[in-house]
Amino acid sequence: MDTTTLERFSLNGSEDVVRVRLAVRTWMRANGFTLLQQTKMVTATSEMTRNCVTHGGGGSAELQQLRDGERLGLRLRVADQGPGIADLPLALQGGHSTTGCLGLGLSGSKQLVDDFEITAEPGKGTQVHITQWR
């Protein structure tokens, strides 16, 4: 599988959340993803980047183009050096909320994309990868 970096972002405020959302929307539209695929990925992008800004104290994001034979995909990687998530399985069930609806954003986003990976050990920050295939 070929992976190409498309763009990198630093995430410090809500304008950065908007910037990444627009970049995801623009690239997916230009590359023939359906409107529903675009909206699901943009929504999951919004959740992950906002979590990074509000819970992780800011961090960085990277957009990658994936090519696996005929398949084309878009992956977003988001990383922060924040506190991580104490009870990740609980957070992914959607019931967990420390400030606002972290749990619903996380568990909900998982339903929107084709692949969802998260590591969030307490004290080691949070790393999330989400991928949508065309």
Partner: peptide, 11 residues
């Protein structure tokens, strides 16, 4: 597309 996404998220 927004309505479908909202429902899939569980909102």
């Amino acid at each position: 597309d927004v309505a479908l996404t909202v429902v899939d998220m569980g909102l």
